[in-house]
Amino acid sequence: MKINAAIPRRIGGLTVLFLLFTAILVFLGYAYTHYYSVPVFYLDREKFTLDHTENGKSLYTSSSGTKVLVQNAGDNRELSINGKTFSIIHEKALSGFPYEVRYPEGTTYRVTRHGDMFLALDEQGEFIPELTVEMNGNRILSPGEERYFPSALVTAAYPEFHNSQGSFGILVLSVALFLFGWCTFRFEKFQRILFWASLRWIWFEQPEPSDFYFFTSKIGGIVIMLGSIVVAFQSL
């Protein structure tokens, strides 16, 4: 009777593991498709994602409801933000600074890209430090400072400069840590494997894990699972 009773429990355990791994794969696939692989860009501390594209026009939206409409004109772009229009002229023959950014007020800047960094110059050829000042969570604009930096507008205008949000690799690491912690907490066989792998048995005359070892393994498993949640948030 005991042998027959053990078989259903074993099958039930395998079923739980199968369902768990299936749920994890579905979760990772959904997270990658709907979050980590989604291209985004930032304007004035707001994150924008593509809403739709139609007839050479792309509409991007943020969680606050702000909209950015980008219209293609060959290699050039025209951005409409809060009723204002910004023009970007892509001049391939222009030495060093291929993007000319024109603001609604008539101000013009030149922008170039070096690796993952942009460099912007004003009409006098002076470098523009694109730094922001905040007070009580609100951005403070300095005299003459643009709300939208020239390089940020160039990034918004061209999809090839958009970046995927978050780090999917860190998410996978957090899931692996959670599984490791769960197995450490749940399965005595796994705890024994860790005991032998740690080579602790070398120092004992009777190499068997103690009750205290099993207890600390469960506590360690809980700590690892909680830590994996913290790591998961770091992936966002």
Rank of each mutant, 00 (worst) to 15 (best):
R147H: 04
H34V: 05
I24C: 08
I140P: 00
M225L: 03
I3P: 06
S64I: 05
A152N: 08
F161A: 02
L19V: 09
D122Q: 08
I89H: 11
K57F: 00
Q191T: 11
L236S: 06
M135F: 10
G227L: 01
I219G: 00
Y213S: 00
N76D: 13
F195Q: 11
R139S: 03
P159K: 07
E208Q: 13
S87F: 04
L43A: 07
S87Y: 09
W196L: 09
L194K: 09
A73H: 10
G56A: 02
A73G: 12
S142L: 14
P143T: 00
L14N: 02
Y103M: 06
F48H: 04
T108D: 13
G74W: 04
W203N: 09
D122V: 10
S228I: 04
V172G: 08
F204Q: 14
G74S: 06
F21K: 07
P39M: 05
E100K: 15
S235I: 01
E130R: 08
K57Y: 07
S62I: 09
T107N: 13
F127T: 08
R102W: 04
N82H: 03
S167I: 10
G56D: 01
F204P: 00
G12C: 11
G169W: 07
R113P: 00
G220N: 06
V70R: 01
A232Y: 07
F214R: 02
L69T: 12
S142R: 09
F41Y: 04
T66E: 03
Y213K: 04
Y109K: 04
G74D: 00
A31L: 05
L141C: 02
H114E: 08
F212L: 13
I81A: 08
K84Q: 15
T107A: 10
I140Y: 04
M1P: 10
P39R: 12
G169Q: 05
L28C: 12
Y42V: 13
G125W: 03
L194F: 09
W201G: 03
Q165I: 15
S37H: 13
T107D: 14
A31H: 06
D211N: 05
T85K: 03
F190K: 05
L121K: 08
I170W: 14
T49V: 11
G227D: 01
F178P: 02
L121I: 14
G96E: 01
D122Y: 08
R10C: 10
F233K: 02
F41E: 02
R147P: 00
N82R: 15
S142N: 07
H52S: 08
K189G: 10
Y60A: 14
V26I: 14
E188W: 11
I193T: 15
L226T: 02
S37Q: 11
R113T: 03
F48W: 02
Y32T: 09
Q124N: 13
M225K: 04
Y30K: 12
S210K: 07
P143I: 01
I222V: 12
P39A: 06
L194M: 15
G181C: 01
R45L: 11
T22N: 12
N55C: 05
I219E: 00
D75A: 06
L20C: 09
Y99G: 01
A31S: 15
F187R: 04
R9C: 11
G29A: 07
E123K: 09
V154Y: 04
L153G: 06
